[in-house]
């Protein structure tokens, strides 16, 4: 997304082709639809995580918490309060923002490893709450939620539309003055302060926006899976967001999207191929860090620049 020219760029063509392909996915069968839908949501969560990480310089190791907040809110609103899809979804967004604001307020005073561990602690804490609290279904979670329209295909288009819209909003944010302030804080918090930015407030803003879209992804995922359980908030799920982002490339807006798709398909294939599928993922992780630290998309763009 580096090109600023007026002409139709390679990136624009690639994105257009990508969207057309995504729209055609239901033709490829139910499983492919399901797989792409979950890849889209993982990508959305990772992209929102990356707003905080790649753009603002804060590594959250507990971001699955917000996925869980979005998901649980939607599930609770539907199954306990009998609200409709739209109302429940709106509540999920609001709750994600509220949680993001409160937890963000407590976390953004810290940076680097302290921030990572504090977010991890909050994630584990709320995992513990979800396991223990009957209202949230305890360890069984909440299940048996009806999917909108009762068909996977139609719901897929809902996911696709909301994900694309969310990505567009996130992209606009990164290109706005707000996005620039994120990057200023990331690159040099001291200088950012000097030029008059309220560093904590900038970080908190990024944290809240990031939580909201992770919550959106979690809420949409609940209706795809038709269930939610406390494990969705465990730190290992948060690590997946980090993994996906670095896999695709944290310094490119679409990096997490590419990473999300690669990861989803890799896990899908590896599990069918071997019972040691986690080993495969582990090896890929190690290889990424050692050989492709800029992510797949990062390398691709570099390679294109060179040509």
């Amino acid at each position: 997304m580096q090109s600023e020219s007026e002409e139709v760029s390679f990136e624009q063509i690639a994105i257009a082709v990508g969207i057309i392909l995504l729209a055609l996915v239901p033709l490829a069968g139910r499983h492919m639809t399901h797989l792409v839908a979950s890849a889209l949501l993982l990508s959305l969560a990772a992209t929102s995580f990356n707003l905080l990480f790649g753009y603002t310089g804060l590594l959250s190791f507990g971001h699955a918490l917000f996925w869980g907040v979005g998901g649980y809110t939607l599930a609770v609103m539907m199954s306990r309060f009998g609200l409709g899809y739209v109302e429940s979804f709106v509540m999920a967004v609001i709750m994600s923002a509220v949680f993001g604001a409160v937890i963000g307020f407590l976390c953004v005073r810290h940076t680097r490893i302290y921030f990572a561990i504090l977010t991890l602690a909050f994630g584990q804490m709320f995992y513990g709450v979800a396991v223990k609290w009957d209202f949230l279904g305890g360890s069984d979670g909440i299940y048996g939620l009806p999917r909108p329209f009762n068909t996977l295909e139609l719901y897929y288009y809902v996911i696709l539309a909301i994900t694309l819209a969310s990505l567009f909003i996130l992209y606009k944010i990164t290109r706005s003055s707000l996005g620039l302030s994120f990057m200023a804080v990331r690159d040099n918090a001291f200088r950012a302060k000097f030029i008059g930015l309220d560093v904590s407030r900038v970080r908190l803003t990024s944290f809240i926006i990031s939580s909201i879209f992770s919550g959106v992804a979690g809420a949409l995922y609940v209706l795809l899976e038709t269930a939610i359980s406390p494990e969705t908030m465990l730190w290992t799920h948060s690590a997946e967001f980090v993994f996906v982002t670095l896999l695709g490339g944290p310094r490119v807006f679409l990096g997490p999207l590419v990473g999300g798709f690669i990861y989803s398909f890799l896990a899908d294939v590896a599990m069918s191929a071997t019972e040691y599928w986690l080993l495969v993922i582990g090896v890929v992780l190690v290889a990424i860090v050692l050989f492709f630290p800029h992510g797949v998309l990062g390398y691709f763009l570099k390679w294109r620049e060179k040509r």
Partner: peptide, 25 residues
């Protein structure tokens, strides 16, 4: 050793990968 020049997120990720590898080994 090869990650010292990178950010700590890479160390966290590398060592997270090692957890998965060790568990299966």
């Amino acid at each position: 050793r090869r990650t010292y020049e990178m950010g700590e997120e890479y160390q966290l990720l590398l060592t997270f990968g090692l957890i998965l590898i060790f568990d299966d080994l």
